[in-house]
Write a protein that binds this DNA or RNA. Structure first.
Length: 184
DNA sequence: TGAATGATCACG
DNA sequence: GTGATCATTCAT
């Protein structure tokens, strides 16, 4: 069942929490979201300034925002905030669901725990890159309903790799998951 | 702990 | 144009 577009119209922080448990599908490969981070127009966000790159975070919601970083990795986000303020949720880790053999080949590893446990890793595993930037989350790569986690099963923490705005607990992950990128 | 590796942005 | 930075990953 498709995740309703309505969900992404909300603020990035609310969306980040609600995305846990949903499933991202591309071709025969898929994974369940176990870790996310919210970005708005705070000082640590690409959307702190409105530029060609961050335009995707300003313009629409319910679309993929995929960017290339460190000269070798992609990171995938879903744009949020239907109120025309900027927002997106970074997908930081997935629990592999389907197409595991194909993903092992793409990632050059046999360790399932290491397949999708990081934003760059999961893009490599799903073969996600810039060609999806700006596309609908109901397109070739899409998101569907999966599990639901109670608040007691979810941990809130500072965003990883972010020095500014450390007081914002905008990282969400499934407490018991062994597939998250990093535990606190 | 540091190298890899190139797009993006600010500045002039 | 040039230089700094980077929502990372992997090997050392």
């Amino acid at each position: 069942m498709k995740t309703p577009l309505m969900l992404f119209e909300k603020d990035a922080v609310a969306v980040a929490r609600e995305l846990l448990g949903k499933i991202i599908v591309h071709g025969g490969c898929s994974g369940m979201i176990v870790e996310t981070e919210a970005y708005t127009d705070d000082s640590a966000s690409h959307a702190h300034k409105r530029t060609p790159r961050s335009e995707a975070m300003y313009s629409t919601y319910g679309r993929w925002y995929v960017y290339f970083t460190y000269g070798m990795h992609y990171c995938m986000n879903i744009t949020t905030n239907g109120d025309h303020s900027p927002g997106a949720v970074l997908i930081r880790a997935l629990e592999p669901v389907a197409g595991i053999e194909v993903m092992k080949e793409r990632r050059k590893t046999d360790n399932v725990l290491n397949l999708m446990s990081g934003p760059g890793k999961l893009c490599k595993a799903l073969d996600a890159d810039k060609r999806f930037n700006g596309e609908s989350v109901h397109g070739v790569m899409h998101i569907i309903e999966g599990k639901t986690f109670s608040d007691g099963e979810v941990v809130m923490a500072p965003r990883i790799g972010i020095l500014k705005a450390r007081e914002l607990l905008w990282r969400f992950y499934v407490k018991d998951s062994t597939f998250v990128s990093k535990r606190l």
